[in-house]
Design a protein around this nucleic acid. Structure first.
Length: 539
RNA sequence: GGCCCCGUCGUCUAGCCAGGUCUAGGACACAGGGUUUUCAUCCCUGCAACACGGGUUCGAAUCCCGUCGGGGUCACCA
């Protein structure tokens, strides 16, 4: 049976790059009726955040992925948190030690750094090699007594080239001299990523490993480990990297950079307030603005929110908060370094599963095209069934704490219907917001373009009376009334609809006029028109 | 710098492995036009690419070599 795993380290929000890996793992497993495992690689005490695992899980779920085994759903191969598998790694480390495939080391990081510098000065590759006589238990005792760090390294056999068979790259050959004897157990007793990952992939019966190209150089080491322990060789697929407009890897630093530049560009910004919003100290703020450091994601997000600066979306939640649909995200991310081979682009999850093929992963780096994502979203907004769409809309409104959360399901559905053609849920929210605020703020542009025209006040006065006298407050009735007035006056719809629109929303943008009035309600509509007429007197 | 990977319209890509059907297809963006009560949506048209240089071959985007360019990686991070 085909088994894939997604193995993130719990450091915070799920990055789109990681989401792509997870998506491909899921797609491959579903395509072939296999299993997908979620495994948390929390072997670095320093980097783990307590809530991060939960965050990763909820981000994956939002995208619409499910897994068959994992920390939250259990399974026969658990535990699925590496920090709970320490005994297992210890046993395998012992095996390697006994067969001299691995050995103890006592170097301090300063010593290692010195060796590296030396090699760099000679323009050589630094590769750690085992000493002639491997240390024994006595040496370990002695090192411990001296307070030296004790690690375990894997001895990389130097007798033959290491060949990696990769589904997307083909055959890649490595000179073993280039591969350093790498650490498999750290001085704190925890396994390194390389070790834990290889052991777990074997024990969890993983058959297909999909990961970023950045892991290609690690693979020869992993194979050495597999050979020494008599493990199976899984199928590897190293995906191309997702790059950003700038050219580099798509990274969270981009958000911080955008924020920094925006703050610098505007000297009027009160830096103390901003730092407070991000809950960071003045010193941290200074260092951030100088480009020496980057605050964590929540801080950056909070500061940008205060200033109203739009940040490029990087994490899955960022897209959620920008009003993108999970279906659209899944579709878009799937096309990052993969395509179905025909000219299809807009695809449902079922179509993606049906079409997915590891052999069609692209070798070239893929650019995350921010202009194209809204197009995908527009299409999916039209495709998703009304109930699901309403659920997504509700979740979005809650996430961003919108005033529209007051709306009931019927109204929610109505708003979605009358905003057909919108690009994002955020756009729909903005378009309907006028009906959920107490006061209208008039957009100067709209006032000038629409309100300050001859005859507008007469039109508004007249339509107000007409609307007042409407027996039925329905879209059809309103539409009819407006139309009749246009005919009587011999003008186009725009001449009447626009003044009403500005009167009730303050802007020139809203759903179709009849629908907008329904959404607002008769009372508020009449009140707003009255208020606008008063306001026009002051112009 | 060493090692590894990659190089088709402005962008994402199809085609390459199994050379001819490629005067290189699609999508986004852009430009122009149309529909429309606003914003969108929608429809039509146009623009535009095989990094460069050598080979191999009757024939190369496709195979080989080199140059240049881009990316990845060189941790007791994953």
């Amino acid at each position: 049976m085909l088994v894939t795993r997604f193995a993130p380290s719990p450091t915070g929000y799920l990055h789109v790059g990681s989401a792509r890996t997870a998506l491909f793992d899921w797609l491959l497993a579903r395509r072939h009726g296999g299993r997908m495992i979620l495994r948390i690689e929390d072997t670095d005490l320093k980097r783990n955040t307590p809530t991060a695992t939960q965050q990763v899980i909820s981000d994956l779920r939002w995208l619409g992925l499910e897994w068959d085994e994992g920390p939250d759903v259990g399974g026969p191969n658990g535990p699925y948190l590496q920090s709970q598998r320490l005994d297992i790694y210890r046993q395998y480390a012992q095996k390697l030690l006994e067969s001299d495939r691995a050995y103890y080391c006592f170097d301090t990081s300063e010593e290692l750094q010195a060796n590296r510098n030396e090699a760099a000065a000679k323009k050589q590759t630094f590769a750690y090699r085992a000493p002639k006589n491997l240390p024994d238990e006595k040496d370990v005792q002695k090192a411990r007594a001296e307070g030296r760090p004790v690690t375990i390294r894997m001895a990389v056999p130097q007798d033959k080239p290491i060949i990696v068979h990769d589904v997307v790259r083909g055959e890649v050959t490595f000179d073993p001299a280039e591969i350093s004897d790498f650490i498999i157990v750290k001085s704190d007793g925890f396994p390194t990523y390389h070790f834990a990952c290889v052991v777990d992939d074997e024990l969890m019966e993983v058959t297909h490993i999909i990961r970023g190209q950045e892991h290609l150089m690690n693979t020869p080491g992993h194979q050495v480990l597999q050979d020494a322990l008599g493990f199976r060789r899984p199928t590897y697929a190293h995906m191309s990297v997702t790059v950003s407009e700038g050219g580099g890897k798509l990274s969270k630093r981009e958000r911080a950079k955008t924020l920094r530049e925006a703050i610098k560009k505007n000297p009027a910004i009160n830096i103390t307030d901003v730092a407070q919003a991000g809950n960071i100290s003045p010193d941290e703020m200074k260092s951030f603005l100088a480009g020496d450091s980057t605050p964590d994601s929540p801080a950056v997000t909070a500061m940008a929110a205060l200033l109203g600066i739009p940040l490029p979306e990087i994490n899955v939640v960022d897209f959620f908060r920008s009003g993108y649909l999970p279906e659209a995200m899944m579709n878009f991310v799937a096309l990052l370094g993969w395509n179905p081979g025909d000219n299809r682009e807009i695809m449902t999850r079922e179509e993606l599963i049906e079409a997915f093929d590891l052999n069609r992963l692209t070798k070239t780096n893929s650019l995350f095209d921010r202009q194209k994502l809204p197009v995908f979203n527009t299409e999916h907004l039209k495709m998703v069934d009304p109930d699901t769409l309403r659920r997504h809309f509700k979740a979005y409104l809650q996430e961003v704490a919108s005033p529209l959360t007051q709306a009931d399901d019927k109204t929610l559905a109505y708003m979605l219907k009358i905003c057909e053609g919108a690009r994002t849920l955020k756009q729909i929210e903005e378009k309907c917001l006028f009906a959920f605020v107490d006061e209208v703020t008039y957009d100067p542009q709209a006032v000038k373009k629409v309100l300050q025209k001859d005859g507008v006040s007469a039109i508004l006065t007249e339509i107000k009376t007409t609307l007042e006298n409407l027996v039925e407050w329905t879209e059809a009735a309103i539409h009819q009334a407006v139309e009749k007035m246009c005919r009587d006056k011999g003008v186009g719809m725009g001449k009447v609809a626009q003044p009403i629109r500005v009167a009730i929303t303050g802007t020139t943008i809203s759903p179709p006029i009849g629908d907008s009035l329904i959404l607002l309600g008769k009372d508020h509509t009449l009140k707003r028109i009255t208020k606008t007429l008063e306001y026009m007197q002051t112009l």
